[in-house]
Design a protein around this nucleic acid. Sequence first.
DNA 1: CATATATAGTTGCGCACGCAACTTTCCTTG
DNA 2: CAAGGAAAGTTGCGTGCGCAACTATATATG
Lengths: 162, 162
Amino acid sequence: MRARSLAEPALHLPGFVPFRLNRLAAEVSNHLSEVYRARFGLEIPEWRVMATVGSEHGCTAQYIAGSTRMHKTRVSRAIANLTKRGLIERASNSGDRREMRLRLTKAGRRLYAQLVPLALERERAVLACMSREQLRGFVAGLDRLEEFLGLRPNTRAAEQSQ
Amino acid sequence: MRARSLAEPALHLPGFVPFRLNRLAAEVSNHLSEVYRARFGLEIPEWRVMATVGSEHGCTAQYIAGSTRMHKTRVSRAIANLTKRGLIERASNSGDRREMRLRLTKAGRRLYAQLVPLALERERAVLACMSREQLRGFVAGLDRLEEFLGLRPNTRAAEQSQ
DNA sequence: CATATATAGTTGCGCACGCAACTTTCCTTG
DNA sequence: CAAGGAAAGTTGCGTGCGCAACTATATATG
C-alpha cells in the first residue's frame, strides 16, 4: 500500500481515471445530445425522465430521482416541462396522494418510439470502436464499479436518495 | 446488425452505457470532491487547473481548455479565482503577448503537494474494487473510447479546441 | 504598410442547477 | 383521535455555466 508520492507526486490528469471518466461521459453525452436536443428539443433531464417513464410506466418522480441519481428538483422541473409539452401526464389517483404516477401520453409514446432507436444506434456507434472482447471487459469494469459505489440497486426501490 | 427495435424498443436506462458513464463519473467525482472541495476549497474547474499547471508548468489557458475539454470561459474563471487566492500566477512575458504562461506560486506548490497524494489515494480506493485483470480490461476500453472520440491527443499541443 | 482575419483571454447575459425551505399527505405513537 | 415526524413534490434564491460579443494582439494579404 506504499504510494508513489515521494519527490514527484506524479499526477497526470490525462491518466487520472476520475478525470477520464468525466471527460468521456461528457463527450459521449455530447454525441447523444444531438439526438435528443437538436431533433426533439429535450435536455438531459427530460431525456432521462422520458426514458425512465417509457420503460417504467406509472413510476414516481422519487423513483426517477433514485434510479437516475438526479436531484429531485431537477426531476421535478423536467417533469413540469414534459407535462407542459404534453409528453407525459401525472395521475395522483394512487392510494398515496403525495406521489404522482407518471405515464407517457400518446404524443409521448410517439416521440419515445422515434427516440429510442436513434439513441440505441448512437450507443452502438460509439461502442463499435471496441472488439467484442474489449467491450466485455469494459462493461465488466462498469458493473464492478457501480456495484462498489452502490449504483446497482436500480431495479430495487432505491429508497435512500442522496 | 439487425437492431432490436421492433415492437418493444427495449431501452433500459440502467443498462444504457452513455447514461451509466454519466452516473458513474458523477459519483466518482463526488467521492473526489470531498478532497478538493471540503478540504481545500477548490471546485472541479479549479482542481483541474491546479492539476494541469502542476504538471505542465508554464502552460496556457488555451492548453488547459484543450486538454481538459473545459470551455475556455470556465478555465478563465477558474484561473481568475486561483490567481486571486494566490495559488497560481500569470506571466505575459512570452513572445506572444496574447497568451499567459501559468505557474504555481509557492503557496500553490504547497497545496498541490498536499492534494495530489490524497487524490491518488481516492482513485486507488475506488479502483481497488477491481482485480488487476478487471482493471486492465476496463482501462483498455477507456483507452479505446478516448482514441475513437478524439480525446487522446493530450500530450500533443491540442490546438483544435471545440 | 494598411486592412482583414484569426487567436488568447475576458465579460455580460440568460438559464439550469443544487440547496434550503415550504406545502401537502401519510404514518406513527400516546 | 390528536400531535410529531417523515416523505413526495414544488419553489425562491444564489451561483456557476455556456453562448455570444468584446478587447487586445498576432498574422496574412494586397
